[in-house]
Design a protein around this nucleic acid. Structure first.
Lengths: 340, 340
DNA sequence: TTGTACGCGTTATCAG
DNA sequence: CTGATAACGCGTACAA
């Protein structure tokens, strides 16, 4: 029951352990009749190969490390789901390494060296990494795919952040909004290649293209949490009573903003319009207009890419997913326009 | 860089590999000065032990398997977070095995034998298992902890389901509601020990204690999804126009019910009151009164229990967490009462 | 197409 | 307290 080894199977099937190994792993050089016999013997004995022994002997682990920030974030949990399904379907296990940000937005340094020898590849999800952290990652000497946020010298899968901002800003501008507050993120180690940075740049570019002056006091940072979004909204509302719209870089931050607006008795969308990013499953019920992305598909794509890299392929550098505006009713013509 | 082994460290420290192993694992029988020397050598060489080799030799993996249904469910993702943090803190890795239900509520059979030799323990999250599935689990020969839903002959951590229903029903009854629809779940393999079953039983008991007749046509099944909750609400509203309240066994199903009510122009709470279970982070913004539980703490507790079992302790059978009503405004006196 | 035999990098036993 | 050495269970050259 506990100790059926490869030699037990070999004995029962009347072949050598080498043949058992080859047959069970589907190597082509085995006669089909032999393979069938081995399979039957293995099934009869309820044999399962020891992954430790296999890894030790082969150097491969058939395990992928998944580094992610908290599942309280819609994006992360959806990517993990998509990636996990694809990886398990391909016969890979998933080693989960999650971590949280402290309330002040900081976080403990992540040491990936514990993953050494444990994984054949890594997926890193949605967080900027410090140079030291990237070093411990690279020292793993396995392929790495970044999803959501990733440095330029690595393979990255994400939505088209720049274009997402353009869509949001153009939507608001078309409704006559000119004083648009932004709720962004300033995470540690953001070296200008995070999604937050790109959404910011896209916003600035979109405003410029529309001839609207960019005012950096119209940006506050919610760091992708609901509470952060609420605090950011509060700060912006205090500083800019004339603001008529809010663009949050995630639905969760937008939800926080909606809470703050409601608490102040400010009507949405009559007084202030709000747009988020994600396409959260509750944006419909809550009534939040959002720039929707398919996070699950990004997880799937990231996993697929990683598997190709492990198989030796030379994949490209970047995969960007499109976004689309979903109007759930939280935007309306700017008050001044309506008045006119 | 790639191939620093225990013997490299041994050579540099001037000791045997056995001593290196003992020193680095913190075994007590090593002189502190020796341990320090070994530690220094290991650090200098950037040595990380091979988990495969360690597992092969010791039989332990320092890895816990986590079996869970989709993270789209609030409960699951919060439990996973709580458990993951505790396990990683204790030096254990987490192997994630997720799966989805098909749209019709069924699911493919889960084969845990792939976890054989891979994990020192298992946490199973929130799903009833078939007898065959439980068998593949038990055949792993490792401690198992169930969180949320678990068979009576295993260690289980969950909220007090029975009492949660009591709280919800008493709250509604105190407001004068008598025709209370329930949105429950009928998952495959539910052998009467699931949270859904217990919430149902608790509801029936609470109604009986209040002298309210139980009517099984007032129960529909949403299977813990938002869409399912919406469909269940629709069916109940069609069949029972006189129904004045809905009690859903999860916030997500309640959210679906709110969607359906809104689509029909039925006001909440003026026409129909709604209560959920969970304390979802968006229940406040959405305005859903709910019986709140601490899912993260349950994940933490489940992990702690499992670690104790792995260490050889004989833990108890059951840990139940309390719940508390959070009034977010979706309940009001029953219309008939108001009219009176 | 199959078998032999060595090696993978630790842990654990037993001496010392 | 420390060292030598035999497992641990498989993958894979190499040979047949």
């Amino acid at each position: 029951m506990g100790g059926v080894g490869i030699d037990d199977v070999a004995r029962l099937a009347g072949v050598s352990t080498a043949t058992v190994s080859r047959a069970l792993r589907g190597l082509p050089e085995v006669r089909e009749s032999t393979r069938a016999r081995v399979r039957r013997a293995a099934a009869e004995l309820n044999y399962v190969p020891s992954p430790s022994a296999a890894s030790l002997a082969s150097g491969r682990t058939r395990t992928i490390g998944l580094l992610t920030a908290s599942f309280s974030r819609w994006f992360n949990r959806n990517v993990v789901e998509g990636a996990e399904e694809r990886l398990r379907g391909a016969g890979f296990d998933v080693l989960l390494h999650a971590f949280d940000f402290a309330p002040d937005g900081s976080r403990a340094p992540i040491d990936m060296s514990t993953m050494r020898q444990r994984v054949d590849g890594m997926i890193v999800l949605g967080i900027p990494l410090s140079p030291e952290e990237r070093l411990t990652l690279d020292n793993l000497n396995v392929p790495i795919v970044f999803v959501g946020t990733g440095p330029p010298d690595h393979v990255r899968v994400s939505m088209d952040d720049h274009d997402g901002s353009r869509i949001a800003i153009e939507h608001l501008a078309a409704l006559g909004h000119r004083r648009i507050g932004q709720i962004g993120a300033k995470l540690p180690y953001d070296a200008h290649w995070s999604s937050a940075s790109e959404r910011h740049d896209g916003t600035v570019a979109a405003l410029a293209a529309l001839g609207i002056d960019y005012d950096d006091t119209l940006e506050a940072f919610g760091d992708y949490t609901q509470e952060g979004g609420r605090a950011a909204a509060a700060a912006l509302l205090d500083a800019h009573p004339d603001m008529t719209a809010l663009f949050a870089y995630s639905d969760e931050m937008a939800f926080g903003a909606l809470e703050e607006l409601r608490a102040r008795g400010i009507r949405v969308p009559e007084d202030v319009s709000v747009v988020g990013i994600d396409g959260h499953e509750l944006s419909g019920l809550i009534g939040l207009t959002t720039v929707a992305q398919d996070a699950r598909a990004q997880g799937d794509a990231g996993a697929s890419l990683l598997l190709e890299m492990i198989a030796g392929s030379n994949v490209g550098r970047d995969v960007r997913f499109p976004t689309a505006l979903v109007d759930n009713g939280s935007t309306a013509p700017a008050p001044a326009v309506r008045a006119a």
